[in-house]
Write a protein that binds this DNA or RNA. Structure first.
Length: 480
RNA sequence: GGUCCCAUCGUCUAGAGGCCUAGGACACCGCCCUCUCACGGCGGUGACACGGGUUCAAAUCCCGUUGGGACUACCA
């Protein structure tokens, strides 16, 4: 095992919001860095001028922070290898592919789009086994003065092995890889090329990414090889070392299809808005494709110590909202009440509810029986407003029959000044004992009078959080 | 079509030849606890895709079949 420091990166394209698959990729890379004392880097891959937008970059970084991830180098914090946005690194790419052109590991191609389309159509029609660029300009020796052109990699003969951390040895025949384009006619370099340039320059040692990139890997390895040729006598000497790759299985929708809006929310932000805690998101994401024995609950600290790339599975997993919700319900109860209350505040505000005098107690009793912050906020309605849902049928069936009990409770509670849970419990208990009535006969009618329905938090909690005035008011209304 | 990846309960997974009449978790069902709900506890339904090998022994290794998926761009 090498002792050189681990340097990993998460390289999002700012063409949309942070997706759950991307979040998991970021998480695993971050864990690898944090566990080994290495560095975690954010690099923005914005070479698609059409689709890249700065506000997406801001949103992605925001979601990563919300999850609790931090980075040692990135577009917002800088670092020794700045800049960290690919569009700001153009001269570098330019220099590198110019060198490749000089070395002959890449070549100019002036094939028109029409020619390429025709070629493709022809291959399709002939049901050709091997498709792709036919090498038309490969040996044309086109110079810089050839007019509009792309730059293609000259793929050598032989085969390329990917020694994958997760999949093991994967072999590709170079003959199956076409001479792909690395630079567009306008000089904008393409993904596979810039990734390699940056990973080399930034000293990336490990790359954990989605399975969809496994097929890109031989192409990238070929670029490493080409760059290694260019390295002789340049500043690249000794630095062109491919990282260790690890390709993680994809996250699919529950029905096995690709995740999309049609079969569930795909963005991290959507789950945040659904009232999922970042701790739960991390916990669930980590368990998707990774495991540690039978353990289900992991704090971020647990993950930081237990995570290993070897624990990552090979088969794709499906996104199960039910399980996420269960994990979330665990964190609803495990987090400090103040933390949950603070997070719940945003959901209360969205409903137009200003601070409640006993808000932490309110959240403390509701989080025991709700699984998300949205569920909690919905359940909190009875504490914030008189405009809550009452089950008229239940009220009609319960209240009139319990008139005497309710009257008695109102009397004793009216005489109770100390509105703490303890005091309330003593008062109600005492009343039950002196009148020889079981608590069960009392609690339900009182709950119905207070909440307008059969279910709710504990009786004394409800009374306490409601407050003396509101509680007595609702009880009185029930016997009026 | 081609290249590559994958295959244990409905879902997430444990399992790295004998510990497996396959374990845990979610969901579902029943019981218990209990002021309701929830939590918690106990129990139940439920899986090694199929076919060949290798081996004294296979969920575990090999081959094939089938089934999923990724890629197949002058996107990333």
């Amino acid at each position: 095992m090498s002792s050189s420091p681990v340097r990993v990166r998460f390289a999002p394209s700012p063409t949309g919001n942070l997706h759950i698959g991307g979040a998991r990729t970021a998480l695993f890379n971050w864990l690898l860095a944090r566990k080994t004392g290495g560095q975690f880097i954010i690099r923005v891959e914005d070479t698609d001028a059409e689709r890249s937008k700065r506000h997406f970059e801001d949103a992605i970084l925001g979601e990563l922070r919300w999850l609790g991830l931090d980075w040692d180098e990135g577009p917002d914090v800088g670092g020794p290898h700045a800049p960290y946005r690919q569009t700001e690194r153009m001269e570098r790419y330019n220099a590198l592919y110019t060198q490749m052109l000089k070395d002959g590991t890449a070549y100019r191609c002036t094939c028109s789009e029409e020619r390429l389309n025709a070629l493709r159509a022809d291959q399709e029609a002939q049901k050709a086994a091997r498709r792709g660029y036919d090498g038309h300009c490969r040996d044309a020796g086109l110079g810089a003065d050839c007019g509009p052109h792309v730059v293609r990699l000259r793929v050598p003969e032989g085969e390329t092995h990917v020694d994958d951390l997760i999949k093991g040895d994967v072999c590709f025949a170079n003959a199956d890889i076409e001479d792909f384009v690395i630079v567009r006619p306008d000089g904008m370099p393409m993904y596979n090329f810039v990734v390699v340039c940056d990973d080399v320059d930034m000293g990336i040692t490990h790359v954990l990414r989605g399975d969809e990139h496994l097929i890109n890997t031989p192409k990238q390895l070929l670029i490493y090889a080409a760059l290694a040729t260019a390295a002789a006598g340049s500043d690249l000497v000794g630095t062109v070392v491919p990282p260790r790759f690890g390709h993680m299985p994809l996250i699919l929708a529950l029905d096995g299809s690709k995740m999309s809006k049609r079969n569930g929310e795909t963005s991290v932000g959507a789950y945040r808005e659904l009232g999922i805690h970042p701790e739960a998101m991390m916990n669930y994401l980590a368990r998707l494709g990774w495991s540690h024995g039978d353990q289900e609950i992991f704090s971020v600290d647990d993950l930081r110590t237990l995570f290993t790339a070897e624990g990552i599975g090979k088969s794709p997993s499906k996104w199960d909202m039910e399980k996420l919700t269960w994990v979330n319900s665990h964190w609803m109860r495990a987090l400090p009440a103040e933390t949950v209350a603070l997070r719940a505040r945003a959901f209360f505000e969205a409903r137009g509810w200003s601070a409640h005098p006993r808000e932490v107690a309110l959240v403390a009793c509701l989080r025991e029986r709700t699984r998300t912050l949205v569920e909690l906020a919905d359940a909190a309605r009875i504490f914030f407003t008189e405009d809550y849902v009452r089950d008229e049928a239940v009220m009609a069936a319960t209240l009139p029959a319990a008139r005497d009990v309710l009257t008695g409770v109102v009397t004793v509670l009216s005489a109770t000044e100390d509105w703490s849970e303890k005091s309330l419990e003593a008062a109600v208990h005492g009343w039950c004992e002196t009148n020889g009535i079981k608590l069960g006969k009392v609690a339900q009618p009182v709950r119905v009078a207070l909440c307008g329905q059969k279910v709710g938090p504990g009786l004394y909690q409800t009374l306490h959080v409601l407050g003396r005035e509101v509680a007595l008011q609702r009880l009185q209304a029930a016997i009026a």
